[in-house]
């Protein structure tokens, strides 16, 4: 069994060498080769949000597509008016796989007293960032949340014990908990996709069920080009092209989670 680059770097880090420099020291010239190799081998899904094309209407379409497909309950406007909730409960129970919020909330700490006027009230499309270094995976005590080799931060709803450690760990508020049985609040149940039970956490899974069938995520399909999806490890993928051609920003990159949702502003 050979040692791969990741393990080697870990080992190097343990030995107090750390990082690229150490790597070059021990195995000169190997870095680029190793990187190229992993890149050729695997898939690393990523998403680019083109804010120039993302109007509120498009965003609403994306949210609608996702939430209908995945049986996400609507606590804001329940299908049956008798189930209407108080403002407080709406706020507390809300389940969001993909949602919008303003620049000041999406990019906390980036706001300026005087800034580009188009940012005023610009609604950013937010979802799980499928981090390379996800804190939610780190804290989960049962591996109910785990990272797939293709980068998707996946959830096993059969295993989740509902401790909500991942919600405390996520710095993007991308996770929601089922505080009650969601079924009565699902406008129209899609029988092909499961609903959730009381007491488990849920979030965006990057439509892994659609990817398995060779389809794009539902939000990307509904976005009419505002969302760009693809394999980061593939030189000519649309995401790589978008990232090459534009200046992009990410949410809270300084936390070291390495989020994989990029925004062209």
């Amino acid at each position: 069994m050979g040692i791969n680059r990741r393990d080697f770097l870990k080992l190097a880090g343990l030995l107090g060498l750390g990082g690229k420099a150490a790597f070059e020291l021990v195995l000169p010239g190997e870095v680029e080769a190793a990187v190229a190799k992993t890149q050729a081998a695997g898939t690393r899904w990523a998403l680019v949000v083109d804010m120039r094309k993302l109007t509120d209407k498009v965003a609403a379409r994306c949210i609608e597509a996702c939430h209908t497909l995945h049986n996400v309950p609507n606590y804001l406007e329940p299908p049956d008016p008798k189930l209407a909730l108080s403002e407080d409960l709406k706020n507390r129970w809300q389940i969001k796989w993909i949602w919008t919020d303003v620049y000041e909330h999406a990019f906390v700490g980036f706001e300026q007293d005087h800034q580009w006027e188009k940012l005023q009230g610009m609604n950013f499309l937010l979802l799980c960032n499928h981090c390379d270094n996800p804190p939610c995976v780190r804290v989960c005590p049962t591996q109910a949340t785990y990272r797939r080799p293709d980068g998707i931060v996946m959830m096993d709803m059969h295993r989740c014990i509902g401790c909500r450690f991942c919600m405390a760990g996520c710095p993007y508020a991308a996770r929601s908990f089922n505080w009650r049985d969601p079924r009565p609040y699902i406008p129209k149940i899609n029988p092909d996709y499961p609903t959730r039970e009381i007491g488990v956490v849920e979030k965006c899974l990057l439509c892994e069920e659609r990817l398995a069938q060779g389809q794009q995520p539902a939000c990307v399909e509904a976005s009419g080009g505002a969302l760009i999806f693809g394999n980061l490890n593939e030189e000519n993928s649309p995401v790589r092209a978008a990232l090459r051609a534009h200046y992009t920003i990410r949410r809270k990159p300084y936390l070291g989670t390495n989020p994989q949702v990029y925004y062209i502003v």
């Binding site: 780190r138 804290v139 989960c140 005590p141 049962t142 591996q143 109910a144 295993r159 989740c160 014990i161 509902g162 401790c163 909500r164 450690f165 908990f177 089922n178 039970e197 009381i198 007491g199 488990v200 956490v201």
Partner: peptide, 20 residues
């Protein structure tokens, strides 16, 4: 816990990287 019925998953799937 949201799912106390699955409490023993903590032992069934021991996960040393979780502080819990």
């Amino acid at each position: 816990l949201g799912r106390p019925d699955r409490l023993f998953n903590l032992i069934k799937y021991p996960t040393p990287n979780s502080v819990l």
